[in-house]
Computed example of a mutant assay.
Amino acid sequence: MRGRSRYDRCGEKALLRGGNERVMWLSTGNDGMPEFEKIAKTGANAVRIVWLTEESAADLDRAITNALSQKLIPIVELHDATGKWDLLPSLVDCWTRIGCRRGDKKHQQNLLVNIGDEVADPAWEAGYKDAITRMRAAGIEVPLVIDASKWGQNIDQLQAVGPALVAHDPNILLSVHMWWIDGSAAAITRELDESVALDLPFIVGEFAHHAAYECSEHPFDHKTLLAKSVELEVGWLAWSWGAAENGDCQDDGPFDMTTDGTSAGLTGWGREVALTDPNSIKNTSVRPRSIETGSCR
């Protein structure tokens, strides 16, 4: 990391553009194929891989390897403790033992580790400082992604205590999940401007076309997010690709970007985010040379 921007091992700025895939619930298995291939066809340069602590190191290695084979920066997140602060130490336990670590040592030049999905508590700052310290002491050197509390939504918290976490360890990315009741252009613009003014290294780790609560009653202006992210050089990952169907809002504007997990199956907001909007993945994603060729030359 340099300031609020992530650079790859060759010193090239890497602005994340891609999506999430619920790899653990794919009917085809948990190695990410052929889903990663389909995501890569949009021009994406990154994929956030939903994982669980109980899965094997060998399976995680295969999923990461498959993402890299499709020229996607792999971001592995553990989903066991979503909304459950008391389970954060168990996630760190996993990352510091071989069950999770095989992937981070083998692929550390290209990998990002999202410690846990939406782990939330008033003790967020102290808890994550401890988690970072434990993981670094275990030899984990990759950039660490840290979700905001309140189901990932609390960007005010990131702005308030994010600088202290960055001072504790500059090789981190703060991630906000924009499941906001107020998903207006004004709210998105205000919060992104404030975060950039603080020079915070952050990404939008999850978003769709409306909130997760009461669904379509609370639309999210994803087109403003796409445009502001280009202007401010903010990375983002849409939720989610859809080869493994989301249960949330299934009868009221599904979060799935696709109907069948293929690029041909992109519909509605997913098609806009991936292909047709002027600021879509297709039109703004750049793959670092290190990911594209495996070399800095």
Rank of each mutant, 00 (worst) to 15 (best):
G3T: 04
G11A: 10
G11W: 09
G11F: 02
E12C: 00
K13W: 11
A14R: 04
G18M: 06
E21V: 11
R22Y: 11
M24L: 12
S27G: 14
S27F: 04
A40P: 08
K41T: 12
N45K: 05
A46T: 13
A46M: 05
L52W: 15
S56D: 07
A63F: 08
T65I: 00
K71G: 00
P74L: 07
E77D: 12
G83L: 07
G83N: 09
W85F: 14
P89T: 07
P89W: 09
R102S: 14
G103E: 06
G103I: 10
K106S: 05
K106A: 13
H107S: 08
N110E: 12
D121V: 00
K129F: 05
T133D: 14
T133I: 02
A138W: 08
P143Q: 01
P143Y: 07
D147I: 06
S149Q: 07
I155T: 06
I155K: 02
D156Y: 11
Q159V: 12
P163W: 15
H168N: 12
P170W: 05
I172R: 00
D182Y: 04
D182R: 02
D182T: 04
D193V: 13
A197G: 04
A197W: 03
L198R: 15
G205H: 02
A211L: 00
Y213L: 08
E217Q: 15
E231Q: 14
S240A: 14
G242L: 01
D248H: 00
T259W: 02
T259D: 11
S263F: 09
A264I: 00
A264V: 08
T267K: 12
E272P: 03
E272T: 13
V273E: 06
L275Y: 10
I281D: 04
I281Y: 00
T284F: 05
V286R: 13
R289C: 11
T293Q: 10
C296W: 11
